[in-house]
């Protein structure tokens, strides 16, 4: 039986999805980044230029937030790794199989509501009139509300809250795949908990760590709503700068597109390097 048509039909939708909805917008952005003006006004012709790219390098006012964004995203990724790894281990190896679904559902529950609502829940929790300040003031621990919003604390909290699952799930999946008898064999051969972790669990969950780190880093670099709603003037992320070029009613889209291309290139390079380093270590471990 000729399965070729069925195969083509089966692959058509994913191909359409990837080409049109993922690559399409990126190619459109790349094209716009080389235009002198966009959106096009009636009667105007398209003129190609490199000026949108040179604008970035000509002014360190743009370079600094780009570097700040990359450093912050990298740090937030490492912090999230440290916070979620023990949780992933607990879920994979410390919870009885029949209870795992319940625990996962509890973790997933906040993700059933939209991102903006989850961000506002942080505002409601940490605001001057929020739950934390209400408790501290009523217990007499504070006389005036403690400012917790619009700085690195609220920004980090938002980032961690929103991207925790992207880190947790790949690590959980990797750890769960490690056979229990491998750990038992290690214990029988005299390996302590620390040795078992560094010699068995960590090397075998490295792929999950790499995937989680790459996912979280890329998501953090591009996030707009978290810094816009929870950040302050001292924590501006590059995505906010880019957003400004798209909000104005003028012809600034090409500049915003060029800056987006630069951010995408930088973040993909860093993510690829992260993966490469981990893959190499994996190769060496073999």
């Amino acid at each position: 039986m000729n399965t070729q048509p069925a195969r083509i039909a089966l692959l058509a939708f994913p191909a359409f999805w990837i080409l049109l909805l993922h690559l399409g917008p990126m190619l459109a952005m790349l094209r716009i980044s080389f235009l002198e003006s966009f959106p096009p006004l009636p009667g105007s012709a398209e003129v190609a230029t490199l000026a949108n790219y040179t604008a970035f390098f000509a002014n360190d006012v743009y370079i600094v937030p780009m570097l700040r964004t990359l450093v912050f995203s990298f740090s937030a990724t490492l912090l999230l790794l440290v916070l979620t790894y023990p949780l992933a281990f607990f879920l994979a190896k410390g919870v009885r199989a029949e209870r795992k679904l319940t625990y996962l559902m509890i973790l997933f529950a906040p993700f059933w509501v939209g991102e903006i609502i989850r961000i506002f829940s942080i505002t409601v929790t940490f605001g001057n009139r929020g739950a934390v300040n209400w408790v501290l003031l009523n217990l007499g621990i504070l006389e005036r509300p403690l400012r917790m919003l619009y700085g690195y604390f609220s920004l980090s909290t938002g980032i961690i809250h929103l991207s925790a699952l992207y880190m947790l799930m790949p690590i959980y999946a990797a750890i769960e795949k490690i056979p229990d008898n491998l750990l038992e064999a290690g214990r029988d051969l005299g390996a302590g908990p620390v040795s078992r972790f560094f010699d068995i669990i960590l090397p075998l969950s490295r792929e999950g760590v790499a995937t989680g780190c790459a996912l979280v880093f890329l998501a953090n670099v591009g996030t707009y709503s978290v810094p816009a709603l929870l950040g302050g003037p001292g924590t501006s992320m590059f995505s906010e700068t880019i957003g400004t070029f798209f909000h104005t009613a003028g012809s600034q889209w090409p500049v915003g597109s060029a800056f987006s291309v630069l951010l995408l290139t930088a973040s993909l390079t860093i993510a690829a390097l992260m993966m490469l380093v981990i893959q190499r270590r994996k190769g060496r471990a073999r």
Binding site: N59, V61, Y62, V64, P65, S236, F238, E240, T241, T244, F245, T248, A249, G250, Q252, V255
Partner: peptide, 15 residues
């Protein structure tokens, strides 16, 4: 006015 201000806004946000 807004042609000039729009660019300045991006610079302020980035600063």
């Amino acid at each position: 006015k807004y042609e000039l201000i729009d660019v300045a806004v991006a610079e302020i946000k980035a600063s």
